[in-house]
Amino acid sequence: MTALLSVNDVSTGYVGLEIVHKISIQVDKGEIVTIIGPNGAGKSTLLKAIAGVLTKFEGTVILNQQNVTKLSASNMVIAGASFVPQTDNIFPSLSIKENLEMGGFLRNSGINERIKEVLSMFPELEKRPNEKAGNLSGGQRQALAISRALMLDPVLLMLDEPTAALSPALREEIFDRIDTIRESGVAILMVEQNAKEALLRSDRGYVLVAGESVLEQTGPELVANPDVGRLFLGAERNQQTDNEGN
């Protein structure tokens, strides 16, 4: 079986500064794949490069057997891969409905139907479509950002730390929605700080350290892996308590 997304030997970073070195990852149809790793490992940078926000220095990206290495961010959406950045992922001065309309900007028809479908997953957004997005709480913003990315019926959804800075209850809710989205047939590739919860729900996971891929296992295997547990999952507990206040 051919992978839905295959990233081959991609290096990327910022001008004059390579952060990610020759990474290869794969996402199959309907899979949830999580990338974990310490701060500064290049997880977000890799995701941005796949999404076309950053240029790739080398390597190829294949989506649905189509070479999308050189596509710009706006063309990646057309190709079927939607991206949700970690922060600044909504249009604050636009209403909830307008945010979703922008997500469906390239849709020729059925925009209102799709908005209804997407919002049915997030009742708290559905209730007030004309609310300014800038007035939403952190969890609602994340929900809106994910909804926006679903507007063009993507085959792959890329999420950059979707539960960062959320309370445990909201985190749980977002993860549940991610499960729902996967059940509708959309593959998910995400970067997560709350690694344990994410991995438990993932089919597979990659561990990234200093811009290099060091380990690929199934989600539960990674959680059970004593090295991973000691390095990332244990340290993460302190971070969770830090985030509680948000």
């Binding site: 500064l17 952060i19 500064g40």
Partner: peptide, 9 residues
Amino acid sequence: RKNMYQQLD
């Protein structure tokens, strides 16, 4: 500055 960039990630 380089260190800053790395921490942005």
